[in-house]
Amino acid sequence: MSRVVTDRLLKAIEGNERAVVFTVIEGEPLGAKALALESGEVVGDGVPPAALGQANELIRAARNRLLELDDARVFAEVYGPPPRLVIIGAVDTADALCQAAKLLGWQTIVVDARAKFATRERIPNADRLIVEWPEEALAEVQPDHATAVLVLTHDAKFDIPALKAALATDAFYIGALGSRRNQERRREKLLAEGVDAVEFERISGPCGLDVGADSQPETALSILAEIVALRAGRSGGRLRDSKQRIHAEAV
């Protein structure tokens, strides 16, 4: 790749910008490279417009892909910031989640309106703590297609406004901790507040995979496993029972 493309790519990686690098790996000009940024900026040449035109779609899917064009094969490699996990409720499980999310390389934000709860001592593993009401915090964080929102408060006073605010965003995952009965109550309340029944189904409640989690780290594992599976379009069963490819593929 030309030095211009390399330099711009390094800058994009450093600045956590969303971008796609296209490389012609079969066809002419072999090895041609272009970098397309989310802003629309394109650096480099020789890459067919049919590939460049897919930049935004690739950024949203957040997976590397080989594009088969009529007269070329173009490898598309997606760069961007890591997924974000926004946790509403600075309860004990929140820190276990932050710790586990760190292993995945995700950014974590913990939100709680109660300053007594949202402290560094209680939640040492969060990348960021926000002492605000959920709606205010979500308005500031602006969850997008690469953000998961998890509501752990199981107190209707915080839960309902938090879930309502989360449903108004592009978050790829919205989860709520609590019993099935709790989830039924949330359904009644949210529908009464004008949330559409189909929209409500975006909420994973009770959140997590059915792994029989007991301790807080196990609960964190169960929830993060569900988030990873959903992001990859998988249901989260056992690999030995699955006929699908083991690794996620581009959707």
Binding site: T23, I25, N64, R65, L66, F75, E77, R245, H247
Partner: peptide
Amino acid sequence: ATVVATRRSAPRPVG
């Protein structure tokens, strides 16, 4: 060197 395609089970992902 970049893995640009995998078929069946491969040890490292595309990219």
